[in-house]
Design a protein around this nucleic acid. Structure first.
Lengths: 129, 129
DNA sequence: ATGCTGTGATTACAGATGTAGACAAAAAGG
DNA sequence: CCTTTTTGTCTACATCTGTAATCACAGCAT
């Protein structure tokens, strides 16, 4: 059932994003990877990694001195959870309400719309036995 | 251009939800409306209303002693902003990526899918000159 | 006038979050 | 071995959030 109900903060999410990209990483690697985007100091990253570890979202293996961190919480799981929370809060849990709002504001590129269409068509095909 | 970049917390969002529902409301009305769902005390609500006022998300008109609060930030605007932030953070800004993730996890009811379909079809019709 | 009552403002406080310095143990280099 | 560098843990602290008690004042009832 994967890791339950872990709430990631924005900063933590960035760190996770890193770990999801290149699995076992040392603190330094994460720091370097995030440096351009965030400019956070080593300490900051390490703190975040600790908190994530405490939350059970990442595991730290300190075999032979050095410690390597890997995500325990999968990106898919995290994304899904975040999505549900978001949809509930903003669109009463309804995806179509969300899409509707976006289209009404013309916040979707034709490209996005095309892709969505394809997606849904594919779905129908797959669902029909 | 409506109110810029106001970030609403979860608690604040609930209060706004209230104000969006029945526009000018007194603090007491908001409190009563939220009581069943949240159980928050009058003080809590008033604090939240103040913070929202400070952020420029609601306006408080104290004509003739009593004070009435109305939203300055529209629900549509708030939702759109929240949506963009969310999409960027979790799905690199791509709605179809989100929908794809949802379908892969079978997190969409057939009903939702049907509605989405309709929505998109309607869109195409409207877009074709 | 005088004391309740309903209402907003002020103050409070614990826990979460963003951000980082100081310190200690371990590794690497000479 | 002893110094320099690396790396992780602890501690720190300002701000933001959630939540509320208390205060002060305006209006109503007596």
């Amino acid at each position: 059932m994967s890791v339950q109900q872990v709430k990631l903060t924005d900063a933590e999410w960035q760190v996770m994003e890193c770990l999801w990209a290149g699995d076992p990483m040392s603190g330094r690697e994460v720091t370097q990877a995030l440096e351009p985007k965030t400019g956070w100091s080593r300490s900051t990253i390490l703190t975040l990694l600790s908190r994530l570890e405490a939350k059970g979202a990442v595991a730290g293996n300190s075999e032979g001195g050095k410690k390597l961190f890997s995500p325990l919480l999968g990106r898919e799981d995290a994304a899904l959870q975040e999505t549900e929370t978001f949809l509930d809060k903003v669109y009463h849990g309804s995806l179509s309400l969300m899409v509707s709002a976006l289209t009404q504001r013309q916040a979707l590129s034709p490209e996005e719309i095309r892709q969505l269409h394809q997606l849904l068509d594919g779905l129908e095909g797959g669902n029909r036995p």
